[in-house]
Simulated scan of single mutants.
Amino acid sequence: VSEIEIYNTFTPDGDGINDNWGVPEIRYYTGARVQVFERSGKRLFYTEDPDQRWDGIFEGKEMPVGSYYWTLEVRETGEVRKGILNLLRK
């Protein structure tokens, strides 16, 4: 799990380039889940589906430019990774 490349920035501005964020490599693990949180700890995104990606929207609203944090948990191995995700808009 420590070898999975996880990008730290995305730009959901509708230009078709880098408009969403996810971790498709979780498809190779059993029970993997990805979550994104805002600073207050409120969860904005959750998935166990490697093809589901976050588009920077929560409850129908675009989230503001800023830093969010993510977690990757793999029940199969008990591993947990955490990091920062930057959301940028033009």
Rank of each mutant, 00 (worst) to 15 (best):
E3K: 14
R81I: 00
F58G: 01
T71A: 03
R89K: 12
W54A: 08
L88H: 12
T77R: 10
W54P: 11
E5D: 15
V74G: 04
D19L: 13
E76A: 15
V74C: 06
R81D: 00
E59Y: 04
V65E: 06
L72P: 03
E48L: 00
G83R: 03
Q35C: 14
D19P: 10
R75K: 13
D15T: 03
M63E: 01
T77K: 06
Y29E: 13
R27D: 13
L44A: 04
L44T: 02
T47F: 05
T30D: 15
R27T: 13
E76S: 15
G60M: 12
I6F: 08
R33D: 14
W21F: 15
N18L: 06
L44N: 04
K90T: 08
E5F: 14
I6V: 14
Y29I: 14
S67W: 01
L44W: 03
V36C: 14
T71G: 01
L72K: 05
E25T: 05
L88C: 08
Q52Y: 05
V34L: 12
Q52A: 12
D55S: 05
Y46E: 11
R75Q: 12
K82F: 03
L44D: 03
V1E: 14
K61M: 01
V34A: 11
P64T: 01
Q52P: 02
R75C: 02
G22R: 12
L72Y: 02
G60F: 10
E62P: 02
W54V: 10
P24R: 03
N20K: 13
D19M: 14
T71E: 04
R39Y: 12
E5K: 15
N18Q: 10
A32H: 11
P24S: 04
L44M: 07
L85S: 10
G14L: 09
E59V: 03
W70G: 06
R89G: 03
E5R: 15
T47H: 06
E38L: 05
E79R: 03
Y7P: 03
D55M: 02
T77P: 08
Y46F: 13
E76G: 14
E38Q: 11
E59S: 08
E59M: 06
F10Y: 11
K61S: 01
P50V: 02
E5H: 15
V74Y: 07
E25W: 05
N18T: 08
T11L: 11
Q35F: 11
D13R: 15
V34W: 09
V80L: 04
T71F: 01
G78K: 00
L85K: 09
E79C: 07
G60K: 06
V36G: 15
K61P: 00
I4Y: 09
W21P: 13
S2W: 14
F37I: 08
F37L: 08
E59K: 11
R81F: 00
E62V: 00
G66F: 07
R89H: 11
G60I: 10
K90G: 12
K61H: 01
I26V: 12
V80K: 02
I17T: 13
V34K: 09
V23L: 06
S40W: 05
R39P: 07
V65L: 00
Y7H: 10
G14I: 10
F45Q: 04
I17K: 08
E62I: 00
K82R: 13
Y28M: 07
I26A: 12
I84G: 00
D51T: 08
E76W: 14
G41Y: 11
D19Q: 07
F10R: 09
E73L: 01
Y29V: 13
Y69Q: 05
R75A: 07
G41Q: 07
I4R: 12
R53D: 01
F37M: 06
N8L: 11
